[in-house]
Design a protein around this nucleic acid. Structure first.
Lengths: 209, 209
DNA sequence: TAGATTGTTAATCGATTAACAATC
DNA sequence: TAGATTGTTAATCGATTAACAATC
């Protein structure tokens, strides 16, 4: 499949649409419109139509979008029809929380490798998987062909772990460590540091209550 | 203080600059340039200068920026000089991980209220604080004047909890639940659903390894 | 002084919105 | 048919980058 060059910002909205559509499905809705979906996710109807039109014609004039059909199309576009294996590095509190996060499995993700450098954690079980020594990370991830990873190590260790992940062939990283990572061209990083999240909001708060 | 209308996207980059500058401080660096900082965070030098110039003139031609000075200015702009109290709703795995997240305290945040609706969790201790019954949320948060909250409850409960937070006077919400929240004008939500994070990346991955 | 780097302006680039013909 | 809503074009809006005078 030749992939046209779709702006990042559009791609990043698709999972939000998908999430809302699946929510509608749980309410037994059959169809929706760009207006209704837009209201749900806080995005203009025109933008939703424009975004979707990048990938095809999924709606019908007069009636809108068939939800099940649009869900399947979005899943196809985002490639979440298949199950992606994910590696997780750093079994601290955040690592454990992600390991047990219930939302991955029915969205096409499965964490199949866990790493830590703490001897007391190595070998312990997470579900059916054992925590492995970070020293074996490059070999293990490369051998398994894993392309997605989550980094939950302390800031000091995050760049080194990232280098190893890249070396192992990982192409996309979710970073929970409070540090900017440097990665080669073609590797994507998403930052989820919760304190940055909070700092983005205090700007808007009034100083005195 | 009268606050000029600074675009959201600029404000959202400031914590990233701040984080990188503090990292430089730990390496005993005294000054930096827009170019050096830009390389560190992956943003163009021109953009950094433009962003900072919205708030004042913090640099010197020829020599760049004094790191300590810029840090203090950014902390002032983002209002993280003071300590902000934060409420946390939902003491599942993610809630616990955030409760123990080490990066908040030295960035101006302190989680001082914990809520859950599970009777077996209510009354248990998190550090020096007790987990409270969600039923008392509105009153407790309002009384304490808390403006920031993190939502870590299941998707089904997230909108209801959000409504209560808004009623209690919360102005900014970090949402870890996999659902779009509807909030009144003036309340800000940031979405940190980890599965959306992953779905944003699979689009770019090759289907066959 | 010579070199470096800022803050800012103007030019470019890209994203969002408004509007509407097409059509279900 | 009448009403609704799409997909798309053109217009608007906003953000990024390039360039450079000012100056440390």
């Amino acid at each position: 499949m030749i992939k046209r060059d779709i702006p990042d910002i559009i791609v990043s909205r698709l999972p939000v649409y998908l999430r809302a559509l699946r929510h509608m499905q749980t309410q037994n809705l059959q169809t929706t419109s760009s207006q209704e979906l837009g209201k749900q996710v806080g995005i203009s109807a025109a933008q939703i139509r424009k975004d979707l039109s990048q990938f095809g014609e999924f709606g019908k004039q007069g009636t809108g979008y068939n939800i099940a059909f649009l869900v399947s199309k979005l899943r196809e576009i985002l490639q979440v029809e298949k199950v992606w294996d994910v590696a997780l590095v750093g079994m601290g509190d955040m690592g454990h929380a992600l390991a047990r996060y219930p939302g991955f499995t029915d969205r096409g993700f499965r964490i199949t490798m866990f790493f830590d450098n703490d001897q007391s954690k190595i070998g312990t079980k997470v579900g059916e998987f054992k925590v492995q020594d970070t020293r074996g990370l490059v070999g293990a991830i490369h051998a398994a062909g894993i392309k997605l990873a989550m980094v939950c190590v302390p800031a000091e260790a995050a760049q080194e772990v990232t280098n190893q992940l890249v070396e192992a062939g990982v192409r996309s990283i979710l970073n929970y460590a409070p540090i900017s990572l440097s990665v080669p061209e073609g590797v994507r990083v998403q930052y989820l540091d919760p304190s940055v999240g909070l700092q983005r909001m205090t700007y808007y708060l009034d100083q005195n209550k």
